[in-house]
């Protein structure tokens, strides 16, 4: 075990949590300003987690206790691991070489699955309906997500994210591929809120319909873990999109050169700024300006329109590279 491993094992999850909660705070603030409210202070998510941690953790009587308690941990662990696969600008991903886009795809699924299983094990009708909805939604958005990732595999002939992040994808294809990539990007952007269980696809946690659904029985530490996993996953998902579609580095973009340590810091900050912008556009703005879909509408949307869009993009990309 080297020093670097220890840093990655402890430092990275901590960094992930801090960044996730920070971005959540910014997201809440901007969403509030969009609705003419003052909104909570940006540190609010940290307080929320702290408060949840000191609250009592209640396990419902007819829940399968061990599954019910384990699933929040699984969810958080999977989002954390997801973060370890994403390169921060030019800083290499900690788990570089131990897995690739396919693993990321599964990790994304795992978190949603953990929530669904947790919901089923809660033994409450609200949570069960929520879990059913989560499963249906998952089945719907996995397909377009997989198509997007296949598209990248076609272009790079590799599933490795670091390879992808090294050269911006836009430079590798011609005009037809550009259109294809734009379609893939659009499909991925539509999948994002579904993947993150945000409006308009927070169907599994619909407050007014099924009283927070999946999470209705969770409290205290378990809820805090889900909250954290949501924060980390939101950050990781957007970071993944940035790594896939906008890997432009600061020095490339502005034609500047920096010495070694400075460039790491600047590129890191540049990456965070890109993530923030995309976060606001793809998560905050979307969740603030749409109402919630019904589950069957959402799944129709994914199975038909988004799938067709993604497939079309894939075909265009394939035409270009074949």
């Amino acid at each position: 075990m080297t020093l670097a491993t220890i840093f990655y094992a402890i430092g990275f999850p901590l960094l992930g949590i801090i960044l996730g909660l920070l971005y959540k705070g910014i997201d809440r603030k901007i969403s509030a300003r969009m609705t003419s409210r003052i909104g909570p202070p940006i540190r609010q998510p940290f307080w929320d987690v702290g408060k949840l941690l000191i609250k009592e953790t209640v396990v419902p009587e007819n829940a399968v206790a061990w599954i019910f308690n384990v699933m929040p941990i699984v969810a958080l662990a999977s989002s954390m691991t997801l973060l370890l696969y994403i390169p921060f600008g030019i800083i290499k991903a900690p788990l570089e070489g131990y897995g690739d886009l396919v693993v990321i795809l599964y990790l994304l699924t795992l978190q949603a699955l953990a929530m669904a299983i947790g919901g089923f094990s809660a033994g409450s009708p609200f949570a069960s309906v929520g879990a059913q909805r989560e499963m249906i939604l998952m089945m719907s958005y996995e397909m377009p997500l997989a198509i997007v990732i296949t598209g990248f595999a076609l272009i790079y002939k590799s599933f490795s994210l670091s390879t992808i992040a090294l050269t911006p994808v836009w430079t590798l294809v011609g005009p037809v591929g550009w259109i294809g990539l734009l379609l893939l990007l659009a499909a991925l952007l539509i999948v994002t809120p579904a993947e993150l269980a945000k409006l308009p696809f927070d169907i599994a946690e619909a407050e007014t319909e099924i009283a927070e659904g999946l999470l209705s029985e969770y409290s205290g530490r378990n809820l805090a873990l889900f909250y954290l996993s949501d924060a980390v996953r939101s950050f990781a998902m957007v970071a993944l999109e940035v790594a896939l579609f906008f890997p432009f580095t600061f020095s490339q973009g502005f034609g500047l050169q920096f010495s070694e340590p400075v460039s790491y810091i600047i590129e890191g900050l540049w990456f965070l700024a890109k993530v923030l912008i995309l976060y606001i556009l793809a998560v905050t703005l979307v969740r603030t300006s749409f109402a919630r879909f019904r589950i069957e509408q959402a799944s129709r949307l994914f199975w038909t329109y988004v799938n067709i869009m993604a497939l079309l993009g894939l075909i265009l990309v394939a035409l270009e590279v074949m």
């Binding site: 609705t35 409210r37 409006l199 927070d202 007014t208 749409f290 109402a291 919630r292």
Partner: peptide
Amino acid sequence: VAHEIGFDPILFWTWK
């Protein structure tokens, strides 16, 4: 009604 379908921003807007 906006709130019931998850459209909280519109709830805030109308109440404003």
